[in-house]
Design a protein around this nucleic acid. Sequence first.
DNA 1: GTAATAGTGTCTTTGAGACATTATCTA
DNA 2: TAGATAATGTCTCAAAGACACTATTAC
Lengths: 223, 223
Amino acid sequence: MPVSMTVDLVIFTIREQRLAVLLVRRGIPPYQGRWALPGGFVEDREDLEAAARRELAEETGVHAGSVHLEQLRTYGRPGRDPRGRVVTVAHLALAPDLPAPTAGSDAAHAAWIPVDEALGSKLAFDHHEILADGLERARSKLEYSPLGTAFCPATFTVNELRRVYEAVWGHEIDPRNFHRKVTRSTGFLVDTGERTNRDGGRPARLFRRGDVHLLHPPLLRGE
Amino acid sequence: MPVSMTVDLVIFTIREQRLAVLLVRRGIPPYQGRWALPGGFVEDREDLEAAARRELAEETGVHAGSVHLEQLRTYGRPGRDPRGRVVTVAHLALAPDLPAPTAGSDAAHAAWIPVDEALGSKLAFDHHEILADGLERARSKLEYSPLGTAFCPATFTVNELRRVYEAVWGHEIDPRNFHRKVTRSTGFLVDTGERTNRDGGRPARLFRRGDVHLLHPPLLRGE
DNA sequence: GTAATAGTGTCTTTGAGACATTATCTA
DNA sequence: TAGATAATGTCTCAAAGACACTATTAC
């Protein structure tokens, strides 16, 4: 009846216009040498989300709430860990492009891996299933919530936001229709009044995240 | 680090055109005398979903897959159970109107309580929060999936399905627009060719659930 | 000038919501 | 007959998708 509790993290970011996930290479059995999701044991008197935040900080060096974190799903199949009964509460994190992937202490073998590559390789434990569930959650989150902005820095252009959507959904989006939809969706984006030409071409407006939590209407992925 | 694992169940059904949840009255401390969600400990070598199905069968007498069951969320705040560290994996079940609420063994004090009543009363542990989360999940499930039919018997009329939506969403829906939307949504409903006049008036077609898992387009709750 | 991206507008189709109308049963 | 519900149609508005066009920068 007593079980060991862990938290595992599906941390997504966008690197070089591709969706990438943070994985760590296991140094010890079981599954030695395989890629795995970062995670660790829940401590005594520690809330699940606190444990996830702690692991997130350890692996990425990012503290505080600049990264979106939510509970994904709990995996407890007997035998999922050969060492005993271990139940893991998987969490999903969406982060902007972070400085260095190896900022943490014991994350010496951590790396950002493109998601399609990660899904094409053998991962430790049931992490393939967890990663697939996290990807599907992220994709639908972008439809109904403004969380695509969680992948962007504090200010960003519509072009940059669109490339987030394209990376997560895996297909191209018409820039003109996208521009119209996101800028007219009330509460999604806030115009800072500033401009940038870092994307080349005509200078683009810089936006901040708005304060809504749900998009009306949603931005359905057509395709 | 070792914790006790339980599963708790938010079991919804429609009774007398109202959304109701199955609650049990606690006979022992803590929270003696309070209403609580049904649930119990996960057994050794038992999968989480299997544990939830077992509890569901014990409480409702329903076996097999006539009831929709899915994982809702995991609650593990330290102190949520005064007896020690107990982490619970809450599940959501959607059931058609069942024969007797007290069919099970130790469910001698089980009852179907209208959801607004349940949310207005003090529940044991953090079950108020779990119930509220389950209600929100059920409401959004009806938008994007065909699971409204999980509340209906094997065959049902459009009228009966509409009353499910009205009970879950808590507001009236135009019968004519609803009829058009659900019957034209491909894969949602299958016409059995039979008719019934159990609702009075002109006989209505009887439908079965279709085989889609997602509705295109969704049936958004307008309000 | 060209090349690139930013931003707006236009057209067609689809669906949502409001609501009229006809159909088919029971009492 | 009246009264109920079933099923379809009509109208208007909003949004999606396709795509033309203008605007503003770098070179």
